[in-house]
Design a protein around this nucleic acid. Structure first.
Length: 363
DNA sequence: ATGTCC
């Protein structure tokens, strides 16, 4: 009945909070959950640990995916070379990304195979929490790679905004946290809505990147887009990823906190199954939002946090949010990536340095 | 996380 195996990918040097491990054990009791993997960025969430993958041969559990269905990372190589970037000018030009996108939503939705009913004010906007759009440059190349060190890069972290939230709310109102049986109609309905939210989130990141690059007077080429909140068919069952990047969808970016490095990595396949074909999706929280605010508000001014230890800039005019999302609230990304490397799950391609992060101009 | 809760 409670036979799920739990495997945590983390070296003894990595600190994993007990509350998160306890949450994995709670989730292991759900009917039909066979295997659980915690990644090195594992941390406690609201009931469900973040940085984990859950496999079931028989059940789909929407609350294991959470409300931000399709949330993930996109990475673009900008047409504008790094040497042309003027940070002061860029900072002035970057504003208004919270406003609704005035382009042809219906056409873009149709291209993505989505109904015009999914148009709305949130499409093309970053949102709150840990979401951002960030300019980066190559810090280090690891071995032979086609990554261009003279290029400027844009990374976008966002999701399905109110759409995924509404899909989960609708499910919970009917079923609470009971699982859906694969093959039954209610399950198919959820999965159809989930897949729409995933496609919507991919389009959202695309539009955010387009708007961001428009303001800088340039264009970009998308190098990758990966979702870290999803449930997908896997080996005859269902693989839920809650803050876990897929290791079977090509290159992956693993972002540090704003103010630390981001890694571009290539998943290795030999031992991928041990980690349920999943990778860490970032540094992982060390402190909850409220802890971060309490600890940091006495030590740092807003101006302090608008410049990071790497000298990058953070545009975040929401003063609660800039404390909640400060780099100090996150674990060490270098250790997280070392753990994945040691576990034989990745090869490093490049380390990317943040230059400017846009979160919100909404005060 | 949230066309977000006070």
């Amino acid at each position: 009945m409670t036979g799920a195996t739990i495997h945590i990918v983390a070296s003894p040097e990595s600190w994993i909070e007990q509350a998160a491990v306890d949450q994995l054990h709670q989730t292991a009791r759900l009917e039909g959950i066979d295997r659980i993997v915690g990644l090195p960025d594992l941390h406690a969430g609201r009931g469900i640990a973040v940085g984990a993958a859950f496999w079931s041969p028989s059940h789909v559990y929407p609350h294991l995916v959470g409300s931000d269905i399709g949330c993930g990372m996109g990475l673009w190589r900008c047409a504008m070379p790094l040497r042309k970037l003027r940070l002061d000018a860029a900072e002035r030009k970057l504003r208004g990304l919270e406003e609704p996108w005035s382009g042809d939503q219906v056409a873009r939705l149709a291209d993505a195979g989505l109904s015009r009913d999914l148009a709305g004010e949130a499409l093309g906007t970053i949102g709150g929490g840990n979401h951002f759009a960030e300019l980066l440059r190559v810090e280090t190349l690891h071995g032979d790679t086609e990554v261009d060190p003279a290029a400027l890069y844009l990374m976008v972290h966002s999701g399905s905004r109110g759409l995924g939230h509404a899909i989960l709310e609708r499910h919970l109102a009917q079923h609470n946290v009971a699982g859906l049986i694969a093959g039954e109609e209610a399950c198919a309905r959820y999965l159809a809505a989930h897949d729409d939210a995933m496609a919507w989130a991919v389009l959202n990141r695309e539009l955010i990147a387009k708007r961001f690059l428009d303001r800088l007077g340039t264009t970009g080429e998308r190098l990758l887009d990966i979702c870290h909140n999803s449930v997908t068919p896997h080996r005859g069952g269902w693989l839920h990823r809650k803050g876990a990047a897929p290791a079977d969808k090509g290159l992956v970016v693993i972002p540090g906190s704003r103010g630390d490095m981001t890694y571009l990595v290539r998943p290795r396949q030999e031992r991928a199954d041990e980690a349920l074909h999943s990778l860490a999706h970032g540094a992982g929280r060390k402190w909850s939002r409220s802890e971060a605010k309490d600890k940091l508000v006495r030590r740092f001014s807003i101006a302090d946090l608008e410049r990071t230890k790497l000298g990058s800039r953070v545009i975040c005019e929401d003063r609660d949010l800039i404390y909640e999302e400060a780099q100090q609230a996150y674990k060490d990304i270098h250790q997280v990536v070392r753990d994945l490397e040691q576990a034989g799950l990745i090869d490093l391609i490049a380390t990317l340095r943040p230059l400017l992060t846009y979160k919100t101009r909404r005060a």
